[in-house]
Computed example of a mutant assay.
Amino acid sequence: MALIIEMTGPGGPDVLRARDTVAGDPGPDEVRIRQTAIGVNFVDIYFRSGLYSPPSLPAVLGLEGAGIVDAIGNGVTNLKPGDRIAYAGMPLGGYAEVRLIPQSRLIKLPDTVSDRVAASTLLRGLTAYMLLHEVRSVRPGEWVLVHAAAGGVGQLVTRWAKRLGANVIGTVGSEGKIAVAKAAGADEVLLHTSENWASDVRRISGNKGVHLAIDGIGGPVFMETLKTVRPFGILGSIGQPAGAVPPVRLEDLGNIAVMRPSIIAAVNNPEFYQRGSKALLAALEHGLSSPIGAQYALRDAAKAQADLEAGKTTGSVILTT
Rank of each mutant, 00 (worst) to 15 (best):
A161E: 09
V138C: 07
S114G: 13
G75K: 05
G65Y: 02
R163M: 15
K162R: 15
V117S: 09
A181V: 04
L63Y: 07
G73T: 09
V98L: 12
E134F: 04
S56E: 14
T171N: 03
E97V: 12
A181E: 11
G185P: 06
S120M: 01
G73L: 12
V117M: 13
G176I: 01
A148P: 00
D187N: 12
V76R: 07
I169T: 04
L79W: 04
R163D: 15
A71C: 07
G73I: 04
V135S: 03
Y87A: 06
A59W: 06
T77G: 14
A184H: 11
G67N: 02
L131Y: 04
A88F: 00
V76F: 09
R139W: 03
L122T: 07
L63F: 07
G176N: 08
R159W: 01
S104T: 14
D83W: 08
H133P: 00
T127R: 00
T127A: 09
E97M: 10
G67T: 04
G65T: 02
E142G: 10
R159Y: 00
P58E: 14
I107S: 03
P140E: 01
L190E: 09
D83M: 10
I101M: 06
R84A: 12
L123S: 10
D187P: 02
V172H: 03
R84W: 00
A150D: 11
E64S: 02
A128H: 00
Q155S: 10
H147M: 13
H133Q: 10
A96E: 05
V117K: 02
G65F: 01
T193P: 03
E188R: 15
Y87V: 08
G89F: 11
I85Y: 01
S56V: 09
P110I: 13
S174T: 13
D83L: 11
S137Y: 01
Q103E: 15
G94E: 14
K108L: 14
K182W: 06
G62P: 04
V98K: 14
A150E: 12
G176K: 07
G154N: 09
V144N: 04
V76T: 13
A166K: 05
V76G: 12
L79Y: 08
G75M: 09
A118V: 06
